[in-house]
Amino acid sequence: MAEFDQLKEQAAQVRRDIVRLVYNCQSGHPGGSLGCVEYFVALYGKIMKHKAKPFKMDGKGQDLFFLSNGHISPVWYSVLARNGYFDVQELNTFRKLNSRLQGHPATHEGLPGIRIASGSLGQGMSAAIGAALGKRLDGDKRRVFCLCGDGELQEGQCWEAMMFAAHHKVDNLIVTVDWNGQQIDGSNDDVISLGNLPAKWKAFGWDVLVLEQGNNLEAVAAMLQRARRRTGKGKPVVILMKTEMGHGVDFMAGTHKWHGKAPNQEQYESAMNQLPVTSLGDF
């Protein structure tokens, strides 16, 4: 459990990082980022076998991660930095001119940890499938992880990817859906209902796991381990992970309103007062 204590401390720090990241540049996406903290911290801290330095694009012999909903770059950048991919101080450059930390993740400036650009939605699962096929061709037994948004699933390309992965038995792939029920213009149900999501994934030929507690670190880690055990059995695996958008900051929690908005000074101070200081320290 000592390990979880450390990861929990990291999760607390990542929440502070997210709020500071978007506050500093007065733009960016805190809501989805805060909701996915436990996923990222568990994935990089406990689940994936990965190497920060030197960062290798082909990731041979390592587990790989692809972020399809690229707008939640704040949580990814914070977790990459806290896992040694680059200096934590570099978080100060987020969304500013001449930075490697672009608004949406990019390879163009050479930021370690990123293997493909994302931001235009609906494309990441396809890329993850391609990387998984590459591992299969190379006899590499490591796994490929991918995170998508739930609103993002409204893009047709996601369903093309789902059909392909089932048809080609891409069973070294674990996709997770950030099932926060929200997107820009409101709840998924207000915008375009996703209907019975587990049934849809099942009908598309996936092994479907539902996680109710996407903001509980132990639960997320246990579910990711369970998902890993279900790989290699002829089906791609998906975790439909229920999270709370904006989790950890009361006025951001549970609403689409903080999808892509930066707090003003007063809101920033209120948020920082709610988020405990950690021994890791702010960037």
């Binding site: 609103g151 993002e152 409204q154 893009e155 997107q183 820009i184 207000d190």
Partner: peptide, 26 residues
């Protein structure tokens, strides 16, 4: 496609709700 206010279409939607269609991210 899930960008109502970024496009400033909320005025039209409010006035003519029956003539406005939210398509989602598609």
């Amino acid at each position: 496609a899930d960008l109502l206010e970024s496009l400033q279409m909320q005025h039209f939607k409010k006035e003519f709700p029956e003539r406005f269609f939210q398509v989602g991210i598609a």
